[in-house]
Design a protein around this nucleic acid. Sequence first.
DNA 1: GTGCTTATTATGCGGTCGCATAATAGCATG
DNA 2: CATGCTATTATGCGACCGCATAATAAGCAC
Lengths: 228, 228
Amino acid sequence: MRRSDAAAEPKFRRAPPDARREELIAATLACLSRLGHEGVSVRRISAEAGVSMGLITHHFLGIDALVAAAYESLAERLLAQSRGPALAVAGDPLEALHAYFSASFAPRALDPAIFRTWLVFWSLVPHSPELRTVRERVDRETRATLEALLSRLKRMPGVRPFKVGAARIGLSALMDGLWVELSLNPSSFEPAQAIALCDDWVHGLATGAFPALLALRRAPLHRRRRRR
Amino acid sequence: MRRSDAAAEPKFRRAPPDARREELIAATLACLSRLGHEGVSVRRISAEAGVSMGLITHHFLGIDALVAAAYESLAERLLAQSRGPALAVAGDPLEALHAYFSASFAPRALDPAIFRTWLVFWSLVPHSPELRTVRERVDRETRATLEALLSRLKRMPGVRPFKVGAARIGLSALMDGLWVELSLNPSSFEPAQAIALCDDWVHGLATGAFPALLALRRAPLHRRRRRR
DNA sequence: GTGCTTATTATGCGGTCGCATAATAGCATG
DNA sequence: CATGCTATTATGCGACCGCATAATAAGCAC
């Protein structure tokens, strides 16, 4: 094989660490979305990335750190996809929220593969400190985004005052629940209905239909009474 | 060891199939709640039950059928725990719904082990026809329960008419979302707040705060128009 | 008791897993 | 063109996996 000596192509390419890390993250997401929890495997992920197993332990502290990085990557992407359209609406807070809902229930957000991936993350949260850390940061961003939108709504004239924090809990729960059901059983209802239910919820919030969420004027401390 | 000949205890006991099946289901639930998806293992489950691996394939068509049976067992138990208190309230539909919420967010329903188990079921749904079948039946029962409660509410004087089916979708999504968040992060809010949010949602529904859920009087067929 | 049914166990096989360790080679630097 | 750093591969090891198959024995009918 004398001829190949000169044109011998390298047996592997040496990539800058950051690029390699991105490749591994992409491969991880591909495995998780295709195989679910069975995709969490050093062998599978490295094969998907077209590299050898050792690279994972070399570029990450371990498989858990890699999965956590993948979680962060996907979560940031999804958040950006929902937040972008919402923040693009400058005026009416109701429309901004509607844009957020529409983007959150767009087809690409309802891809079953994403749900499969998410289940893996959820099931790893209790056992993986790295994943829990990432999740806390991602959660904080998501909360901040939703609370910002709700705060805009609250400042709108004619809107009954409400507790932003508590409202965010309810709204994100409603959205998550709708997303889960739609992911598990796409035929159970239309995405448009999910959006309408979220819009309705916001409407109820704005019109003061939720007694427990109303921001009541607090009495001065010395006048507070505790029911017994 | 002549002595032991007479008192030789049996090497195993022969159980009636139904009882053995229950034991295996219990062992399965124990493994799933303790180990999550790693608990789905013929070896682990049979060890947990104190029997040999072969028994699983003997009493069930396979591991998938066993897991499906475990899903059904747990789901029925949880449903009964929530439905019982709700149906025990004969009078006020609002109180019946409140009882349903209270039971659904009681400590035993928020056990992290249950969530871990549930994640396994969810992630198996796409791949296991048996599990999907069971899930459809369980879902139908849950839907029926909630819709019955909502129908009672709808018949209450003074309550604005609404679409029961659509309302059920929203309410169960809200409940599921709250349950997921609480299971993932028990310290993010109090169970009592989850109950209050559900009560609020029902209050909004009853007072007609949800435009898209209002049961509008339908125009006669020949007068229907489709917007373009 | 005796025998039959079948619930139950024991064992082996091929495969994949994570991990550790040693060898290799790309590539920048001089 | 030589050299060193380190990204990368290759390989072996022990453990666990699901599955299949043959052997065993519990307990009921007679």
